[in-house]
């Protein structure tokens, strides 16, 4: 590759460099800007007078005495009890990921191993379900959930998110299990295992890479969801994303905008770490369905 790079004419190298530089600024700058700004006061974060204030923190120094302030974080996490929402998010994510993966590995495995036509129809139905905007389903849940008093509970939301997650999980794990040679579990069954024993003893030990990748995406779906959690959770069970949205409603009074900014940075941080540690799996997962056709 390095020899190829050397052969690049300078004009091409310059073009590549420009494209990459512009894209890096577009992709990274908004996050860095908001992270930096979250430690300032509102007058600096939104500095009409001089944009350099946002970097130097002139007003922050005037108002709080230091160049950085954690007021926004204190306001969001302590005053507005954002920690409660964070806790709810953790609970929702843990349960959604573990239940989705349990159901998904069983189903995905069966779909990968079945040679009958109905397996194809099942996958096609899942694809159609995947295309349904979640909010259209929510308007189907509400009357029933109100009627049966299921509305507002964390458990209801977890099950709904698991179901909405299933089509994607099934597709991903199905294509993953297809890559594990069928001879592996078939030979176990020749040796006298039942189908489930073969799955348990032979497939489970080798399936972890695919399960981790799928789990990351299940986590993202649960963590990032707004439509379902905003409509189905009562105020005290709210997760972080609808909580931020309710911050926005009350940001008109001065200072509250910074609560929302700090909360936004707090939500971004775990995602940032996730991409940092699982970059390879995420890239692999995104391309799993595509490259194999």
């Amino acid at each position: 590759m390095s020899s190829k790079l050397k052969r690049q004419p300078p004009a091409i190298s310059l073009l590549v460099f420009t494209v990459l530089a512009i894209w890096m600024i577009l992709a990274a700058f908004p996050f860095l800007w908001t992270l930096w700004g979250s430690f300032k006061v509102e007058g600096d974060f939104f500095s009409k007078a001089d944009w350099a204030n946002a970097i130097k923190g002139t007003l922050t120094q005037a108002e709080t005495g230091g160049s950085f302030t954690g007021d926004g974080y204190y306001g969001a996490w302590v005053q507005e009890e954002f920690w409660r929402a964070a806790l709810n998010s953790v609970i929702v994510c843990i349960f959604v990921v573990s239940i989705s993966l349990t159901l998904g590995t069983l189903g995905g495995y069966a779909l990968a191993r079945s040679t009958y036509r109905y397996a194809f129809w099942f996958l096609l139905a899942a694809l159609i379900f995947r295309a349904m905007p979640p909010i259209t389903l929510v308007s189907g849940y509400l009357p029933v959930f109100f009627q049966w008093n299921l509305w507002g509970h964390t458990a209801t939301t977890i099950i709904v998110l698991v179901a909405i997650n299933q089509p994607f999980t099934l597709w991903m794990l199905h294509s993953f299990f297809k890559n594990i040679p069928a001879e592996l579990d078939e030979s176990a069954m020749v040796d006298g295992c039942t189908r489930f024993q073969a799955f348990r003893n032979v497939i489970i030990p080798v399936m972890w890479p695919g399960v981790i990748t799928t789990g990351l995406f299940s986590f993202l779906l649960a963590y990032n969801d707004f439509a379902v959690t905003a409509m189905l959770l009562s105020k005290e069970n709210q997760t972080m994303i609808p909580k931020i949205n309710s911050f926005l409603g009350t940001t008109q009074t001065k200072g509250n905008v910074m609560f929302a900014v700090s909360a936004v940075v707090s939500v971004t941080a775990p995602l940032f770490l996730m991409v940092l540690f699982f970059q390879r799996q995420i890239v692999g997962g995104l391309t799993a369905g595509a490259v194999k056709g």
Binding site: T102, L103, G104, L106, G107, Y109, A110, L111, F122, A125, A126, F129, M132, T136, L137, G140, Y141, V144, I159, V160, V162, A163, I164, Q166, P167, L170, R195, F199
Partner: peptide, 17 residues
């Protein structure tokens, strides 16, 4: 094998539709 997953989708995607 497919039952739990199918049930989840039936109850929370198909019926809501």
């Amino acid at each position: 094998f497919v039952l739990p997953s199918a049930l989840a989708m039936l109850l929370f995607i198909f019926f809501p539709i």
